[in-house]
Nucleic acid binder design. Structure first.
Lengths: 231, 231
DNA sequence: TTCCTTTCGTTGCAAATGCAACAGATTTTT
DNA sequence: AAAAATCTGTTGCATTTGCAACGAAAGGAA
């Protein structure tokens, strides 16, 4: 796909940048595109990262080996999402994860340090736009992590669940939504045992707080959930 | 203190920037200095933040009201440390905390968006240096949060404690160190009850893993601690 | 359909943690 | 020094959660 520029300008990083400017900038920064067949390794644990990656198509996974040796999927990045930016930005950190292509994937690599260099008269405005977009991206990742942390700080499973559901309600803007993954996934997010999660889900449903069937949730008593979440 | 420029270049944000360049840059960016007497409010919860703050002298605290109304100190920033950067970078978020001067404090405010704008021929190199420093700062805050999260994900208090002590050992580069704050502080970091912490500390000491007296710790069996932390 | 695999809820029991109360130690204030 | 306030360890008891095992339900494949 050589029409990638159109897609590019739809990414958060290139938001507000024209197609022409995007092309000129990629050129001036010496960005490179690379194709990775499904399963191939993009980045190895322990490597230093000098360029952020923007997924043009496909999906990329960050993986890690747990203490028991079991494979843990730490993150997934789909089309137009950025990865490796935090490592590149730090400049000194080795990757704590392997990054592999979960499907056939095309990636655009961006040398962030080049982006920070003044570019003479070349797309001055677009450069600034992209720098601000980058800051915004980095900070959003920070705040997302912060929310995770608030979740885990909640004293009890009941509270965590309430917060998680209300968070989903906010982003989906509806009392009815589907959470990704299985119960096991949700349990991991909340940092608890799966059976403990099922137990608490059962209790809360019997109290009429919401209905859950597989991944689909319908909230019934938002007020009470908010009271719980406040703990 | 009008000799603040010397100090400034010792901060992480201005690392690698000469005193002269720092002065020129502050001028070009229209940075402003402000003095806050102890106890005064620098930033209110709910406000939008347009400038990052660099503490020139004194101490700044981020505070928040818990569910019960009790005051919680979320973060402290001493001399040469940066605050409000994540909020400024996001561009859209309201502050989730109040920021107040914990002592008489002088702050230098930096408009990050100005820093991202090409500056013609004015300190081109220094600008780039500072932009990279900023990225580095943001990412370090991210990774610090990430470490906190790993800590809370640990299945048991014993594991969390082992990780926390080994982390301290790494940064202090010694088997003997003092942790800031009281037991209550440490318990909060680990996300557990204080008495539970004391209990576990007692057990682990009886097993000869380390000695703890008030804030001071001496590690004795690092190998075993590492085995525990791996869980 | 039928078989097989994955997901899910349930439950009994063990382990970990929260909570509250108290006493000794330490630090700070008067 | 004396008194007051804070910090710390300890302990009994209630609650929460982890763990393991099992059967039912759901979804996919033969």
């Amino acid at each position: 796909m050589d029409d990638y520029l159109f897609h590019l300008t739809r990414s958060a990083l290139f938001a507000g940048v024209s197609e022409a400017d995007a092309a000129a900038l990629c050129d001036s920064l010496r960005c490179r595109r690379a194709f990775y067949p499904k399963g191939s390794v993009i980045l190895r644990r322990g490597e230093y990262v000098e360029r952020a990656g923007l997924v043009l198509s496909g999906v990329v996974q960050a993986e890690r080996n747990g203490a028991d040796g079991a494979l843990r999927i730490v993150a997934r990045h789909g089309a137009l999402e950025l990865f490796g930016d935090m490592l590149t930005a730090s400049g000194i950190r080795k990757s704590p994860v392997d990054v592999v292509a979960a499907e056939d994937t095309e990636v655009l690599f961006l040398p962030l340090s080049e982006l920070m260099r003044d570019g003479g008269s070349v797309c001055c405005e677009a450069r600034m736009r992209m720098r601000l977009n980058l800051l915004s991206q980095l900070s959003e990742k920070y705040w997302a992590l912060n929310e995770q942390l608030e979740l885990l700080r909640a004293p009890t499973l009941r509270t965590r669940l309430a917060r998680r559901l209300l968070a989903a309600r906010r982003t989906r803007e509806s009392d009815s939504f589907t959470l990704p993954g299985t119960r096991e996934t949700l349990a991991a997010e909340l940092g608890v045992n799966r059976s403990a999660l099922s137990r608490e889900l059962g209790k809360m449903m019997r109290e009429g707080l919401f209905t859950a069937r597989r991944g689909h949730f319908v909230l019934h008593d938002v007020a009470e959930l908010e009271r719980l979440a406040a703990q």
